[in-house]
């Protein structure tokens, strides 16, 4: 089975025929916006994030972080595997505010 070798080799080529294609669904960031950020000097996933909001939404970059790395590799000549993924932050998965608020009670009890 070698159906999706691209994912592992980091060789996905994202064609720019559809500049309106959504790369980050949560924040509705398009391919054209990502490419613009790269052309303005963004060289890491976090830099693209700060310029476009890609990866700042509900899923925190679970889907788009990888696509952004591909785009960075494609447009800057960096090796896909050497581009670090987005910085992961607490709580990693969304949790309700009231659950977080009860944290100390749990640890004390």
């Amino acid at each position: 089975m070698d159906k999706h070798p691209r994912t592992y080799e980091g060789k996905t080529e994202i064609k720019i025929e559809h500049p309106d294609m959504i790369i980050c669904r949560c924040e509705e960031v398009t391919l054209a916006q990502i490419i613009e950020a790269i052309s303005e000097g963004a060289r890491t996933v976090d830099e693209v994030k700060r310029r476009t909001r890609a990866g700042m939404g509900l899923c925190q970059g679970r889907t788009c972080s990888r696509l952004v790395r591909h785009l960075l590799a494609q447009h800057t000549g960096q090796n896909f595997h050497q581009i670090p993924p987005m910085t992961a932050r607490v709580p990693v998965r969304p949790i309700a505010l009231e659950v977080l608020a009860s944290l100390e009670d749990d640890t004390n009890g």
């Binding site: 700042m56 939404g57 509900l58 925190q60 932050r89 607490v90 709580p91 969304p94 949790i95 309700a96 505010l97 009231e98 977080l100 608020a101 944290l103 100390e104």
Partner: peptide, 20 residues
């Protein structure tokens, strides 16, 4: 979280997605 909920209890079910 506790302090903010004290002011706005209606936020209790809202999702925390990131802290830094």
């Amino acid at each position: 979280a506790r302090r903010c909920l004290r002011f706005f209890p209606c936020l209790k079910g809202m999702q925390v997605i990131r802290s830094w």
